[in-house]
């Protein structure tokens, strides 16, 4: 479990995160949503330790990140998998080498054991035949799957995804969403996804944290988001006519 308490982060005079507190549970897909500029990326980078926060605490299963030594932080990070928005695959390596990379760095496995493990996770993300392609030869959807495979190859406790389905067609986006949810359940990881894709919210939002102007405006799930009367949430989530109709149908069906 990841517990965030009263998190503040500023860049110069700009106060980006204004006292965010929340928890992210194991085995659940936790979504952070909000408009562009709401502080989602800064929040996830603070969680990952890529940005130093000004105030507050972040604890990973009871270990307070800011109290850890440099080496303890690096050890904690070896338990984290991350799927970057653009994939962040190492472009000088093949797809197989990309997936094997965390194993080479953190395990004492033999080469054949690493290949077997990488082969297993590549099959798990439905990429059985792409081992020897370079990342530049793979489509956007394939790159995201490779990034997920690299993220989970080391059996991480925590998986972070920064807009995992941005730039993908709706079908592939749903495939990626479902894959992340299945893997989260299978490996019982704490998964935190940064998204502003409403399909993801409705599909896999087991827990949703809505940020607005650096504040936590609302917290709930894909079920409770239909019933909320919070104007900021409804304006953001149901901004399109389609989603307005979907919400109305849901509320009519459920007698609200």
């Amino acid at each position: 479990m990841i517990v965030v308490e009263n998190l503040h982060k500023s860049f110069g005079d700009v106060h980006v995160l204004k006292g965010i507190s929340t928890t992210f549970d194991k085995g659940m897909t936790n979504l952070i949503i909000g408009a562009s500029g709401s502080g989602k990326t800064v929040f996830i980078k603070c969680l990952l330790g890529l940005f130093q926060y000004d105030e507050g605490t972040i604890s990973y299963d009871g270990k307070v990140f800011s109290e850890l030594s440099r080496n303890e932080r690096r050890n904690l990070r070896s338990e984290i998998g991350m799927v970057f928005q653009g994939g962040a695959l190492f472009d000088s390596m093949t797809i197989l080498e990309n997936v094997m990379f965390p194993l080479q760095m953190f395990t004492k496995m033999s080469n054949s054991e690493m290949e077997d493990r990488a082969d297993f996770v590549l099959k798990r993300v439905n990429l059985p035949d792409a081992h020897y392609k370079m990342p530049s030869e793979a489509s956007g959807g394939m790159q995201k799957r490779v990034a997920i495979a690299r993220g989970i190859v080391n059996n991480p406790k925590y998986l972070f995804c920064d807009e995992p389905n941005s730039g993908l067609d709706p079908n592939t986006a749903i495939v990626i969403d479902n894959l992340i949810q299945e893997i989260t359940d299978e490996y019982q990881m704490v998964t935190v996804i940064n998204s502003h894709d409403m399909n993801s919210v409705m599909e896999i939002g087991e827990k949703i944290v809505f940020l607005k102007n650096g504040n936590k405006e609302w917290e709930g799930s894909k079920d409770t988001i239909f019933q909320t009367n919070n104007d900021a949430v409804t304006d953001f989530v149901y901004s399109s006519e389609l989603f307005k109709k979907v919400r109305k149908m849901y509320l009519d069906e459920n007698g609200n």
Binding site: G49, R77, S78, I80, M82, F84, A88, F106, F160
Partner: peptide
């Protein structure tokens, strides 16, 4: 630019 350095850091690599 392509966040590959961030990827290394997140993995706990110097």
């Amino acid at each position: 630019v392509t966040e590959q350095i961030d990827a290394l850091e997140v993995m706990g690599i110097n």
